[in-house]
Amino acid sequence: MAGQFEIFTDAESNVRFRLLAADGTVLAISTAFDDKRQAADGIMAVRECAGTGLIREVSSNPWTGQRGGRNASPTPAVREHRHRHRHLPAV
């Protein structure tokens, strides 16, 4: 059995969708939408691009939201490197 999308209303009355694996594991939860139609459009967009989407590795500090290492003001060489993104093929 394939995975499935579920449209639901969260605790703040926002419409969202989640992608479930065949075993029921939640793989992804969407951003908030104004209504079910927009959520359905979001599902269609995910279906359309997920099979061909590239994987991009981005590092960030979960406490500050800033990318990069522990230094508050990285050197220019580090800053330049930080903005380059490595694209990996979809698997």
Rank of each mutant, 00 (worst) to 15 (best):
Q38M: 13
A21E: 12
A40F: 00
D23Q: 07
D35W: 01
L27N: 09
A40I: 08
N14R: 14
E12N: 13
D23N: 14
Q38I: 00
L19E: 13
D23S: 12
I29K: 12
S30Q: 11
L20K: 15
S13G: 03
A11S: 07
I7C: 05
T25P: 02
A22Q: 06
A21C: 05
S30H: 02
E6F: 01
T9G: 03
E12A: 13
R18M: 03
A28I: 01
D34G: 15
G24P: 08
A40M: 08
D34E: 08
F8M: 06
D23G: 07
I29S: 11
Q38V: 02
T9V: 15
A32E: 05
G42Y: 01
F33L: 12
V15A: 13
F5E: 09
F17S: 11
A11R: 14
T9N: 02
R16M: 05
E12R: 14
A32F: 00
A32H: 02
D23I: 02
R37V: 07
F33P: 04
E6D: 10
V26G: 01
S30I: 04
A21R: 08
D41M: 08
A21T: 03
A28E: 14
A21K: 11
A32M: 02
F5D: 07
A11L: 10
F8N: 08
D23H: 09
L19W: 15
A39E: 07
Q38L: 14
S30K: 10
V26A: 07
K36T: 10
R18Q: 13
D23L: 03
L19M: 10
N14V: 04
D41A: 14
G42Q: 06
R18F: 00
T31D: 15
T31E: 15
